[in-house]
Design a protein around this nucleic acid. Structure first.
Lengths: 188, 188
DNA sequence: CTAGATATATATCTAATAGATATATAAACA
DNA sequence: TGTTTATATATCTATTAGATATATATCTAG
């Protein structure tokens, strides 16, 4: 079974929303789908080349005003078919690599004050992401017209991000009280 | 800033618990820390070589009975120091790559029956993991002696896995009713 | 008792990925 | 005016995922 790049499909997903340049795709991952996906330039530009060779995507150069050229990519009907097939395949597990959990697996090796800092930093970060997701849902509810078939999925998708971050925040509270308990015990 | 392999540190973490062979480490990731970490043989054996070169780890060949030799690795004091430094560094963000979310971002392109299958499969998988984690906590509470300083961290660590999986299960319910609603609408 | 499956153990290879950097122009800014 | 930020593409390397190869030992079902 030959492994298949997921970058291929993430590009097809993005182009199924609207035509974009490689730069646009990087922005899209950063601003719209950063909640659950990430791509680097290295992945985007090299994968675009193979997608064109395979006829799943076409690119045309565009010039607007004095700006330098850019290439806007579009998904082909073959590309849509390939995307459709992949969407129907079972979801493959995501490999877990949670650095926070790895570090606290040997929690006794971390000075208590540092442990506390780790937790507080994680809390802050999760809160920020939570806030961003809630705002995104509000914006979608107001601005995306009801006729857009993606709307309900986009909102529910953001809900997953919210629920997971709320869970992590709850866990941070548990870990924080474990650590604070150990700190106060150590002061006796 | 040169990138540093996280496999290095995951090996040091495992060896800080107890000496192990490469094979043991693979088993350890699969059975003990699969909740939040994963390593492949390719990573383990090649990284072990560089860790030995750097003096962070030593390996000695062992023979038990008729069994073929194996090499058991131990962390050195230098290794412990390096691990301790890494444990105090801020936690770097984990790159998000959630295939389930990516697919449902273009939910309208998936046939409703297939969407339902995806959700039901994910639900099943999360339930299994949840069950495994709950059992692991029970086992730890009973079998790990109170004097082991890691105990409270191990239990709280498993709690994170539980909370996150419960959140995902709750989301599955939301997504399931969205899809079932669309299915019944489509039958009118 | 024996063929096949599973567990122990190490090693290696390739495709995929993360993250950094290089390059160049245009626009914003201070 | 010089500096930073945004647009845009391209490329390179270290890291990682996943597969496969090899060999022995042990378990198990016919």
């Amino acid at each position: 079974m030959s492994r298949k790049s997921k970058t291929r499909y993430s590009i097809l997903v993005m182009l199924s929303i609207e035509p974009m340049s490689g730069y646009d795709m990087k922005q899209f991952t950063k601003e719209v789908i950063s909640n659950f996906w990430s791509e680097s330039y290295g992945q985007i530009y090299t994968t675009l080349k193979t997608l064109i060779e395979e006829g799943l995507v076409t690119g045309k150069e565009i010039e607007e005003g004095k700006k330098p050229y850019k290439t806007v990519y579009e998904i082909t009907s073959k590309g849509s078919r390939v995307l459709g097939e992949w969407l129907c395949e079972p979801i493959s597990r995501q490999v877990p690599r949670d650095e926070l959990s790895l570090k606290f697996f040997v929690g006794p090796l971390i000075p208590l004050e540092v442990s506390l800092q780790h937790i507080l930093a994680h809390k802050e970060q999760q809160k920020k992401q939570l806030d961003k997701l809630k705002k995104a849902i509000n914006r979608m509810e107001e601005e995306v017209p009801e006729e857009v078939p993606h709307k309900a999925y986009w909102i529910t998708g953001s809900r997953l991000g919210i629920l997971v971050r709320e869970a992590r925040l709850k866990w941070c509270d548990e870990m924080e009280s474990l650590i604070r308990g150990k700190i106060s015990k150590s002061k006796n």
